[in-house]
């Protein structure tokens, strides 16, 4: 599966489909092609890692995948929906319903406590679920945060903060979880715990996209996408199965 075209799957179980996606920035008189015709498809239950040098377009790719940015041209379908046709409000609704974000610097909201931070995506849904708080509590419990619910983010360790962020990314039961160097700020032991958590999520059938610099982290995914100069350089499968290690 070295060729990107071979990754096209059947539409039924595709979570994210990109076809000839371009993202062009205008910087003064110069045009920067951050994404220059990117096509691939992520199937439900896959675990992708994205690698590439800085400036290779992986951040832009993640922004497009996360509906924070729109392609200049090309089609991006998230769960079958053409993102380019949605207005700002609808895109926001997509983010609050179908996407979970995990950032390198956790990005928790400092004035909210742990439970409130976990629930933020639900606040912004048009029809928030009735059982939102229970869901948030059980996720916090799963992340080992049950006795930290009333704490502010700054009172927690980095690993704990990232667990809050992961709980927040899961609270809306998203189609796609996007992690941007989620272990970059953590010591190796905590990073390992977080990565094990991702494995666990994958095993449960979640779809994950993980941007990383580190090859050994990338190797834990089922698919490794390498970006170069705004293009997909190669996509490799690690033959890693959901069940265990390679």
């Amino acid at each position: 599966m070295g060729d990107e075209s071979s990754v096209w799957g059947d539409g039924a179980s595709a979570v994210a489909e990109l076809s000839e996606v371009r993202r062009i920035y205008r910087m003064g008189s110069e045009e920067v092609h951050a994404l220059d015709g990117v096509s691939f498809t992520i199937q439900r239950g896959e675990y992708w890692s994205v690698m590439g040098a800085s400036g290779s377009g992986k951040s832009t790719l993640l922004n497009v995948l996360g509906c924070l940015d729109r392609p200049t041209s090309g089609v991006y379908r998230l769960a079958g929906e053409d993102v380019n046709r949605l207005d700002d409000d609808a895109l926001s609704e997509v983010r609050s319903r179908n996407l979970g974000f995990i950032f390198q610097s956790y990005n928790l909201i400092p004035q909210l406590d742990v439970l409130e931070n976990i629930m933020v995506p639900l606040f912004y849904q048009e029809e928030p679920p009735e059982d939102g708080e229970e869901r948030a509590r059980s996720l916090a419990e799963r992340m080992g945060l049950e006795d930290r619910l009333g704490h502010r983010p700054l009172e927690l360790s980095g690993g704990q903060q990232q667990r809050v962020a992961i709980a927040r990314a899961l609270v809306n039961d998203p189609e796609l979880i996007l992690a941007d160097e989620a272990t970059g700020n953590l010591d190796s032991q905590t990073a390992e715990e977080i990565l094990n958590l991702f494995d666990e999520l994958w095993r449960e059938g979640k779809t994950l996209v993980f941007v990383t610099h580190e090859p050994h982290v990338a190797e834990r995914a089922s698919h490794v996408l390498r970006m170069r100069d705004g293009r997909v350089h190669e996509v490799t499968t690690t033959h890693r199965e959901r069940g265990g290690t390679v």
Partner: peptide, 8 residues
């Protein structure tokens, strides 16, 4: 952050 998490 809030926008990324779905705030309109």
């Amino acid at each position: 952050i809030r926008r990324a998490l779905g705030a309109k």
